[in-house]
Design a binder for these strands. Structure first.
Lengths: 214, 214
DNA sequence: ATAGCTATTATTGTATACAATATCAATTTC
DNA sequence: GAAATTGATATTGTATACAATAATAGCTAT
């Protein structure tokens, strides 16, 4: 239930700032208000919606400043994953990572951003897992999901796939060389510049303001 | 509501592994099952309880291995706070931090572990805030709270206050010197060694097993 | 006597009804 | 004419009732 609502938030069907009426949602999903309320509470705990007491729930709106902060933390989590992965990755995980990297390359060459988007997610999740710290993997995945709705905007950036892929290449290289510090630095940078691009984009899109406040 | 249940978990009144019966809790708090269910969902999202579908909720039990993982992440978050704090701390925040540090010293000299425990929390929260990344502050605080029930065990460790305080001294020194890398390293180490001690303690306490599985 | 199956009980999950509060509009007063 | 207050309406928060499923215990059969 909450997954379905989360999906609608991630795809922008429920845009940031939109009011989520319990009765409407219940009717929309063909259930009573009870499971809807429970789903909203879950999503609120995950940070995807905000519940204002006695005033209903809205999809969380993240301003450019906060988005920067979140990407700053995401960058650090991914850097940590990379540092651990460089030390702990197994041979079979190495093979899968290289394979995922090559799949990204194919999507770049085919110029298919939507496929690249999906493969990119897989690539990063492989690094989360290769750190062999399950709690860290969970935290990184959770924050990654939370930023999903904003990552959509990435599709607008010019030559995103090209720069992203070459950064990936450097990351893979560092991990395979077991150079934990280099892997950490390159992953951090990879995420931070993304965050800055997103924040700029959000700040420059008056469209979102009309969503948010209108 | 969920705060009250969380408090009972943190204090060990509801020990790890304990089954949380909705009807019992409702009777215990003098409300109906509905707000109890909503509180349990919140706590489950925060990771403090686990809800097994159709099989009720239990207080999350964290084994030594996972505890290590969690402290590994906590160490990294605090290291990041320290790194940012060294760069961004204001003069008034510096004064408050020094003040908090001296308060810890007084508690150590007075040999009052419970007071030191509280002042230590304040000390760390000041560093979270001094990083001037509100999202990071929230994440660090959330994980800190999640580990609260296990931090209680810290009280058993011999000469905890002495070693803790001297580590704090090094951290304060690095932050005031605006040496972000040193602050980062010292904070990470400060947390990691705590995590190892906790994990050892949890592993060596058969008492907890009886709680968990009996 | 033990193992498997069935029936009963207890507990979770969902729906609905009701109460409390916030919002909005209309009316009145300054 | 504008602002404030009061009433009406809609929406959230809580309680309760009912349905569905899992656990348990008892019974039967091998």
């Amino acid at each position: 239930m909450s997954d379905q609502i989360e999906e609608r938030i991630a795809t922008g069907f429920y845009p940031p700032g939109m009011r989520l009426d319990e009765t409407e949602l219940a009717a929309s999903f063909g259930v009573s208000r009870t499971p809807i309320r429970e789903a909203l509470i879950q999503l609120a705990a995950a940070g995807l919606v905000e519940i204002r007491p006695r005033r209903g729930a809205i999809v969380t709106e993240i301003g450019p400043h906060r988005l920067c902060e979140m990407f700053e933390v995401m960058a650090e989590l991914e850097a940590m994953c990379g540092r651990l992965a460089a030390r702990r990755i197994t041979e079979s995980e190495q093979r899968v990572l290289i394979e995922a990297h090559h799949a990204c390359e194919a999507a770049r060459d085919a110029n298919t951003p939507d496929i690249y988007y999906r493969l990119n997610e897989q690539f990063h999740h492989l690094i989360y897992a290769a750190g062999h710290n399950i709690f860290l993997e969970e935290q990184a995945s959770a924050l990654h999901r939370r930023l999903r709705a904003y990552r959509r905007l990435q599709l607008r950036v010019r030559d995103r796939m090209g720069t992203s892929f070459s950064e990936h290449a450097g990351i893979v290289e560092a991990i395979l060389a077991e150079d934990s510090e280099l892997a950490s630095i390159r992953l951090r940078e990879h995420i931070v510049v993304q965050g800055q691009r997103f924040a700029d984009l959000v700040a420059s899109l008056p469209m979102l303001d009309s969503f948010n406040h209108g």
